[in-house]
């Protein structure tokens, strides 16, 4: 936190290649780290699946694909609103920034509600994080992603309060990262077979 407040005024060249990226450079360190974690988890999924493709296919079929598609649409729309908030922040319009961020957050909340219903259905069907290799990975990866959605909502709330250019740029970068990761996680768990 201290870093963020003391470093924002610095000349852009000091962060080397990170300087060209929008928002606070350390956010991009985080984005790269998150991509690495989810990337490794999905490669782990491929490895675990290869040991028992049939069991994975059967359990994959039991997922609610429609809910997954709906959630994709929710996040993409939310991301669009967040990008609009970023534009408004650049234009110096704090009110519109906050409105767009509120809209983005509302859809993020919608994502969590849909995900909650999905989980409830899966638990009711007797699946949980320890029930099989597929569901261990499914609950770990989507659960970890959902935690990022929660964190993202908090971050959007904070940058909405500040409504400054750099803050919104940094906060929405996190939100887009959550979006981006879903775009990779969703096809792997729900669609690719």
């Amino acid at each position: 936190m201290n870093a963020a407040t003391t470093q924002t005024a610095d000349a852009p060249a000091e962060w080397g290649p990170l300087s060209a990226l929008p928002g606070h450079p350390l956010m991009w360190v985080l984005i790269a780290s998150e991509l690495a974690v989810f990337g490794l988890a999905l490669l782990g999924y491929a490895g675990a699946r290869a040991q028992n493709p049939l069991a994975f296919a059967l359990e994959q079929d039991s997922l609610n694909r429609l809910a997954g598609v709906a959630n994709t649409a929710l996040l993409l729309t939310s991301g669009y609103f967040a990008a609009r908030a970023n534009q408004a922040a650049h234009a110096g319009d704090a009110t519109r920034t906050r409105l767009w961020l509120a809209a983005a957050s509302a859809l993020g909340l919608g994502f969590l509600v849909v995900k909650g219903f999905e989980y409830a259905g899966e638990f009711a069907a007797g699946h949980d994080i320890d029930s099989s290799p597929f569901f261990t990975l499914y609950f770990l990866v989507t659960g970890f992603h959902a935690l990022h959605v929660v964190l993202g909502l908090i971050i959007l709330g904070i940058v909405g309060r500040l409504a400054t250019k750099t803050a919104v740029e940094t906060g929405t970068a996190f939100w887009h990262m959550v979006d981006l990761i879903w775009l990779v996680v969703f096809p792997v768990f729900y669609l690719m077979r």
Partner: peptide, 15 residues
């Protein structure tokens, strides 16, 4: 990541 997962599915197809 997407390509590697897809590749592994092609190499180890679902029976």
């Amino acid at each position: 990541v997407l390509a590697l997962v897809a590749g592994s599915i092609l190499v180890f197809p679902t029976p």
